[in-house]
Design a protein around this nucleic acid. Sequence first.
DNA 1: GTGAAAGCGCTAACAA
DNA 2: TTGTTAGCGCTTTCAC
Lengths: 350, 350
Amino acid sequence: MKQDQDTPLSPTINDIARVAEVSLATVDRVLNSRPGVRDKTVQKVHKAIADLGYVRDTAAANLARGRVYNFVFVLPSNSNEFIASLVGQIEQLAASLRRERTRLSYVRVAAFDPVALAEAIDRIDASTVDGVAIFGPETPSVRDSVAHLKANGVTVVSLVADVPSSERDHYIGVDNVAAGRTAAQLLGRFVGPQEASILVLTGSMLARDHLERRLGFDEVMARDFPHLNILASLEGRDDPDLIERLLPTTLAENPNVIGVYSSAAGNEGLLRYLVTCKRQDRPIVVAHELTPLSRQALLDGLFDAIISQDSGHLVRSAVRVMRATRDAIPINTAQERIRIDVYLKENMPP
Amino acid sequence: MKQDQDTPLSPTINDIARVAEVSLATVDRVLNSRPGVRDKTVQKVHKAIADLGYVRDTAAANLARGRVYNFVFVLPSNSNEFIASLVGQIEQLAASLRRERTRLSYVRVAAFDPVALAEAIDRIDASTVDGVAIFGPETPSVRDSVAHLKANGVTVVSLVADVPSSERDHYIGVDNVAAGRTAAQLLGRFVGPQEASILVLTGSMLARDHLERRLGFDEVMARDFPHLNILASLEGRDDPDLIERLLPTTLAENPNVIGVYSSAAGNEGLLRYLVTCKRQDRPIVVAHELTPLSRQALLDGLFDAIISQDSGHLVRSAVRVMRATRDAIPINTAQERIRIDVYLKENMPP
DNA sequence: GTGAAAGCGCTAACAA
DNA sequence: TTGTTAGCGCTTTCAC
């Protein structure tokens, strides 16, 4: 390519029709692989497409079709900052996507409740909805509901927590095992070489993302930091109050804790505990998700690092992937890969 | 919004024309703020737009306009992996943007050479090019060339290294001061509390990005790690061979170096030196830009962390910003902010 | 099996 | 100052 400033106009279906000596309608039939065209004609058209290097103008196609994309997000109803930020991103993107014939909406479902989730999925009207992005636990009933949606031609992606055995078209979220590994590497390096204990706060071992993080964390801790003793997880159910209550007891039983990995939501409870600690007794803390609270904690030196995933990217990526799946065009996997972001107070976005 | 599955069709200019009791052409004139419409009529149309909540369909507008975006990237001609990856991203995106009426091309210009850069910019044909993304040093002659382009209606963005005083419309790249700060925080924590020296490798102090990184680095080192002695920068001019030659001398003169911050390109030279070190003598290394070479170094334990910026994101962002500027539609600053990525071997993309 | 023609939402001559 | 009309590239009846 290099500098190619002259702009040879792209060929259109008119050019193809002319070259292949058929009508526009026939070209269209071939392009959309609709039936009712003789094999020989199909070949002619394909040849013309190849010869001219034709690429279809999706915008024009969607305009003609009158296509309006309608996507629904299904989110947990417990409201922590991460979910709130997801909601905010959906609403913001919904506004700006209006000019692109794309409608976004969301429904909320009780957290950690597979039955409610399956019901919510079943309530989605497959005739008006083009795609659904689901953030929730995976169970057989959920899988059935997803399969049913898909059978009705709806695109389904999983969000934040994958549901690998289900029928989803794509997973939009980080590799949670790798996120756990990253947390371990960071925390292990930050606490230094002394022998001591590490506390892991988790949400629910039913949540696949939480489980995977713990797996990755343990793996790297065992491999690279054998002098550290990893305590059994504290299940906080993403509930700040519960966490605040559980922490003092656990830490009293284990006076040797110099590091904490907060692998789920509920940072607020942890922070309420941390501010009560004397400066020099405070453990090194690695937590998840950059939110107003955790960013302040980073600034204040209460947290030492944050592992995060960009909620804006999650939402935009979900929409792009659902749209591309709908249009049967390829997706840019590099662009859609959700990064495991590492934030220190120095590289936080403003 | 919540669940809003019924899809009320968006109003079109036809609806506005009907409500405002004017013709399509008049609505169009108002929408594009073209002259020749009575004030009163303008008001009527604006009222109808507001009442109906109209948003213009950009795809249809571009189709009708027959608009084809033509963007040119100006890149340094010295080829290190980072620039190679930028080129790869441009070529890849160019291919996929064909379906979106957008043409991408690039020109290469001698690195660290303001005169050549200004000449290259002057050679760009403002009548066929809609936007230019420039990665290069800022000098008065460059500023003049940029101003000239802009005067001819071309959108100009700076890429990777900002040129704040010039006339560019936007800067696409990381905050390099913050990147330097991040490197310092990471390196300072990783090397531990012992008194020792840190070596900083830079490219050229003429390059604004390199300079800014050094500033940020020094700032945090002085603030948080006063026990570390930061040596004067080694200017490697992004040249692996030069770096490989300079390193042994410098390190012999400063036997106490336990950490290296490689703040520019030329990692290859550093690596050639590192493999010759005995395992236990190797310094802790924080480098810039995730590339095939640096990712392997991370895996091999030769590098301890990488500060990076996503080349795919840079290129996509540049294109989106140039397009939005051209269409005078708002840009999503959160989406266009280039992250300061921190990579450990655990969170590298595959 | 294939083609002609109308139309998606918007723009741009050209008239009036 | 305003309106009419013919497209942009593609899809979709409805004929043949």
